[in-house]
Simulated scan of single mutants.
Amino acid sequence: MLVIGLTGGAGSGKSTVADLFAEHGAGIVDTDVIAHQLSRPPSAALDEIRTVFGDEFIAQDGSMDRPRMRELVLSDVSARGRLEAVFHPRILQLAKEQLQTLTATHHYALVVVPLLFESGRFLPLVSRTVTVDCTVERQRTRLAQRAGLTTQAIDQLLAAQFSREQRLALADEVIRNDGSREELADQVATLHRTFIKLTKSA
């Protein structure tokens, strides 16, 4: 099965693009979804979070206090590294397992990884990469609509990721998301046909 890595900066529209690919029958493995699952009990990751960061990062319902953790890791690079050490190996293993289940029923699958290029950990899973691209101004506008993200938090979030130019230089394919949903859907449809051809020529 052909495996595509889908990435893009925060607020670029990765989830929307993944949904459009799913409408064409692509298998989807979303590492953000996996991370949310690991952040809720029961999860061995939560026990390690408690050990590494302390009880104050566990909410009353037993899940990880995501707003507090986000505030910490955006301001402390070492804390971000410790968090990734807890989550990334587990996310990678679950992503591999989900891909395995898709092999029998899909021609190709997308692994959605926000920090695909930054971490490098998930790159061995994929044979091609797609970056969802938009202007930084558009990213900021979309991020500002999310609950709990201040202007400072947005600045920190964008600074923690590769620049737009870095992602574009590394990507095999680029989807522009500065226009209408129809324009976005047309680009996805074109890439879908490309990926189907690749699976048939493999």
Rank of each mutant, 00 (worst) to 15 (best):
P124A: 01
P124M: 01
P124N: 04
L125R: 05
L125A: 07
L125C: 06
V126E: 03
S127F: 00
S127K: 10
S127T: 14
S127G: 14
R128C: 01
R128S: 09
R128W: 10
R128H: 15
T129E: 05
V130Q: 01
V130W: 00
V130M: 03
V130E: 04
V130A: 02
T131Y: 08
T131Q: 05
T131G: 03
T131C: 14
T131V: 15
T131H: 07
V132D: 01
V132S: 01
V132Y: 01
V132P: 01
V132W: 01
D133E: 10
D133Y: 05
D133P: 00
D133L: 11
D133C: 06
D133H: 10
C134Q: 08
C134H: 08
C134G: 06
C134N: 10
T135Q: 09
T135P: 01
T135H: 08
T135M: 05
T135N: 06
V136R: 13
V136E: 15
V136D: 13
V136M: 08
V136N: 09
V136T: 15
V136I: 15
V136L: 14
E137C: 04
E137Q: 13
E137D: 14
R138S: 13
R138G: 03
R138A: 14
R138M: 13
R138P: 00
R138D: 12
Q139H: 12
Q139A: 01
R140D: 03
R140W: 11
R140P: 02
R140I: 14
R140K: 15
T141C: 04
T141H: 12
T141S: 12
R142C: 10
R142T: 07
R142E: 10
R142A: 06
R142I: 08
L143T: 11
L143Y: 11
L143K: 11
L143D: 11
L143F: 11
A144L: 10
A144Q: 13
A144G: 12
A144W: 06
A144N: 10
A144P: 02
Q145G: 13
Q145T: 12
Q145A: 15
Q145W: 00
Q145M: 12
Q145C: 09
Q145F: 00
R146M: 03
R146A: 06
A147M: 06
A147C: 04
A147R: 13
G148T: 09
G148Q: 09
G148V: 09
G148C: 09
G148R: 09
G148P: 09
L149A: 02
L149T: 02
L149M: 14
L149F: 14
L149N: 05
L149P: 02
L149D: 02
L149Y: 03
T150Y: 07
T150C: 07
T150W: 08
T150E: 08
T151N: 12
T151C: 04
T151M: 04
T151K: 13
T151A: 15
Q152H: 11
Q152Y: 00
Q152V: 10
Q152C: 04
Q152I: 04
Q152R: 12
Q152F: 00
Q152K: 12
A153C: 02
A153G: 08
A153K: 15
A153V: 03
A153W: 02
A153Y: 02
I154L: 11
I154Q: 10
D155L: 03
D155I: 02
D155R: 07
Q156A: 15
Q156G: 00
Q156V: 00
Q156W: 04
Q156D: 12
